[in-house]
Simulated scan of single mutants.
Amino acid sequence: MKKTLLAVTTAALLTTGIAAPVHEADAVRQTVTYKKASGNSVASVARSIAAKRIYKYGANNNYAVDCSAFAQQVMSAVGKRVPRTTHAQIKAGRRVYNPQAGDLVFFNRGTHVGVYIGNGQMVDALNPVEGVKERSIYYINGTITGFYRYY
């Protein structure tokens, strides 16, 4: 099923490798194709999508993503709708203190997001050098803002 999304430029790579929000005026329309997961775990869905994507600032398509676009694509593939930007994603979720696979984990006051897959691991789109892949939630420079769940 094809969905046309407004890809909002949400992250600028800082020298620390942490993404920062930018203005929505830089938005570009792109077409993204999502396949709904059927019986797959969030971890396998996230790994599968990550294997087919590279990191590109502001991107949200079948080839390239930024952190919030990656989170949005994974959540859509498991049947959950989340907004495009990290800050809107935080507002739409419910903060939880017992993270489970499928929650989103936010860092540094919402400047970065990853898909939590359990056991202290996440899959995220970090930057052009680090790419889109699985890594520890403690790999990110800075602090964990919180874990958020979507229904």
Rank of each mutant, 00 (worst) to 15 (best):
F147N: 00
V32Q: 08
K2G: 05
Y150P: 01
V45K: 04
A92G: 01
A88V: 12
T33D: 06
T111M: 10
R149T: 09
I117E: 00
A69F: 09
A101R: 00
A12T: 14
P21F: 01
Y150N: 03
Y139I: 03
I137S: 00
Y97P: 04
V42M: 06
D26F: 14
T31P: 03
G118C: 02
A92I: 02
S68E: 00
F107M: 07
A92K: 12
S136P: 06
H112S: 06
A11E: 12
C67N: 06
M122R: 01
T111G: 15
V32E: 08
R81F: 07
V78M: 10
V129Q: 14
A27S: 13
A25Y: 14
A101T: 03
P21S: 06
C67Y: 05
E134Q: 13
K56Q: 10
P21I: 00
K133N: 10
S44K: 14
P128G: 13
A37M: 08
V82R: 11
A11M: 11
R149I: 01
R84Y: 09
Y148F: 12
L5T: 09
H112W: 04
A19G: 12
A37I: 04
N98V: 09
I144N: 08
E134D: 08
N40Y: 11
V45P: 03
D124V: 00
D66Y: 04
K36H: 12
A43Q: 14
H23K: 06
Y34V: 13
V82M: 12
L6A: 13
D26A: 08
N98L: 07
L6K: 08
V132Y: 01
A7E: 08
N127G: 11
N60S: 09
H23Y: 07
R47I: 00
E130Q: 15
I140M: 10
G118P: 02
R135Y: 03
A43C: 04
I140C: 06
P128N: 08
D103N: 01
L13W: 10
K80A: 02
M1A: 15
V42R: 10
V82I: 15
G118A: 03
P83W: 02
Y116R: 03
N60V: 10
G142C: 02
T111R: 04
Y97L: 07
V42W: 13
G131I: 06
T9H: 11
S76C: 14
V96N: 05
V105E: 01
Q30T: 15
R95K: 15
A50H: 05
K2N: 08
A101W: 01
V129N: 13
T31E: 05
A50S: 11
I18F: 14
R84G: 02
R29G: 07
G58V: 11
A51G: 10
L104H: 00
V123E: 00
A88L: 15
G142S: 05
A11W: 12
A37W: 13
V132S: 04
C67P: 05
A50M: 12
L126G: 04
K80Y: 06
V78F: 08
F70S: 02
V129R: 15
S41G: 11
K80P: 03
A101L: 08
R84Q: 12
R47T: 00
G79R: 02
N40A: 14
R47G: 02
F107S: 01
V96T: 13
N61C: 03
Y55E: 07
